[in-house]
Amino acid sequence: MRIIRSKEFTATRAWGADDIANMGGVTTRLHWTDKPYQWHINDGEEVFAVLDGTVDMHYRVAGIEHVATLEVGDVFFASVGCEHVAHPRGEARILVVESEGSV
Rank of each mutant, 00 (worst) to 15 (best):
A14P: 11
D56L: 01
V80Y: 10
K7H: 10
E8V: 11
D56A: 07
G25P: 00
E71F: 15
P36G: 01
H66S: 04
M57S: 07
I20N: 02
H31V: 08
S6N: 09
A78S: 08
D34C: 10
W39I: 05
R93I: 10
G63A: 03
L70C: 05
R2N: 14
A68Y: 04
G53Y: 05
V103N: 01
R13E: 02
T33M: 14
G25V: 04
I4Q: 07
R5Q: 07
R13K: 04
H58K: 06
L30S: 05
G101D: 02
R5E: 14
A78E: 02
D52W: 09
A49N: 13
A62V: 13
H31P: 11
V61G: 04
G63E: 00
V50G: 03
F77P: 05
K35V: 07
G24Y: 14
T33P: 05
L95E: 02
E100D: 09
E65R: 02
V72C: 15
R13N: 09
D56R: 06
I94K: 01
F77K: 13
G16T: 00
E83H: 00
H31R: 08
V72K: 15
V72W: 14
I94C: 00
M1T: 15
I3E: 08
A14Q: 13
V103K: 08
V72F: 09
V50D: 00
G53I: 07
F77L: 11
M1W: 15
A68M: 13
A62T: 13
E65A: 01
L70R: 05
I94G: 01
A49K: 15
R89H: 09
H58W: 08
A49Q: 15
R60K: 15
E8K: 11
A86L: 06
E71Y: 15
A49E: 12
V50I: 03
A17M: 14
N42M: 12
V85T: 02
M23R: 10
D43S: 12
V61I: 14
G16M: 12
F9G: 04
T28G: 10
I64C: 03
V26T: 10
F9A: 02
V85I: 14
W32C: 04
V96Y: 07
H58A: 12
H40I: 07
V72G: 00
V80R: 13
K35T: 11
N42P: 12
Y59N: 10
E46T: 15
V97Q: 09
E71C: 07
I3W: 04
T69N: 11
D43G: 11
T54M: 03
A11W: 04
G44Y: 12
K35E: 03
D34V: 09
L51I: 04
T27S: 03
A86T: 08
A62E: 11
